[in-house]
Design a protein around this nucleic acid. Sequence first.
DNA 1: TTCGAAGTTCGGTGAACATCGAACAACCTA
DNA 2: TAGGTTGTTCGATGTTCACCGAACTTCGAA
Lengths: 116, 116
Amino acid sequence: MRHADRNPDVDQLTLTDVLAALSDPLRVGLVRLLADGEEFNFGEFDAPVAKSTLSHHLKVLNAAGLTWRREEGTRCFIRLRREDIDARFPHLLDTVLAAADRDDVGNHVTTPGAAC
Amino acid sequence: MRHADRNPDVDQLTLTDVLAALSDPLRVGLVRLLADGEEFNFGEFDAPVAKSTLSHHLKVLNAAGLTWRREEGTRCFIRLRREDIDARFPHLLDTVLAAADRDDVGNHVTTPGAAC
DNA sequence: TTCGAAGTTCGGTGAACATCGAACAACCTA
DNA sequence: TAGGTTGTTCGATGTTCACCGAACTTCGAA
């Protein structure tokens, strides 16, 4: 796998980068799945795109500071970086998630674990 | 001047379009100036870009449903569409504006009327 | 009616982005 | 060590974006 730098520092996060990361329905869908704090494995995401595309979107979320990533062997685990985002941009994530839930944004991104 | 359709319908607004519109520092700067509800004239905005670029950014904000526009002769007046945005995406604008104020996003966009 | 002011639109450019399939690297397991 | 699994990276492609200057349209004023 081998990675470049990931998991940017809290004070490097910018509002516009976060909003840009959240301006794609697929990425919003990913964030919604991650919203309850559970850690997900790359392979658990079921999105209608190639795995290279999924990898790209997860990289964007990580670069914006929205997710933590952790590697274990060849596996890659992703978790929402809620504490830092909440500290840096209070209520932003809650507000966006609430709106996304109401409009069902990114509903084409699922996970086998989720019922329905 | 002559315009194509503007001022989109409330229920046409999408979360991702709004977030995309707010993912540019210059546009956030514009929204911050508009935040108190005051109506501004195109020419009153002082941004370090060509007027065609400013026109473009204002069009993006309008297309996303963030602003109202009104024409009077050759003049074009812009006002924040707060009621509709608040109704459609509760607290989103407040949250983003608060974060933008704290980080002073888009501070390169000013207006002659503003002191300092 | 002639001129200037106010914005929009057009054409072009370089950068960024979403997307894919193929190749690759790292790891685990048989 | 030979294969399979896992996810990243690498071109390549087509789209969108920010940006500019120039041309244009509309209007008001002299």
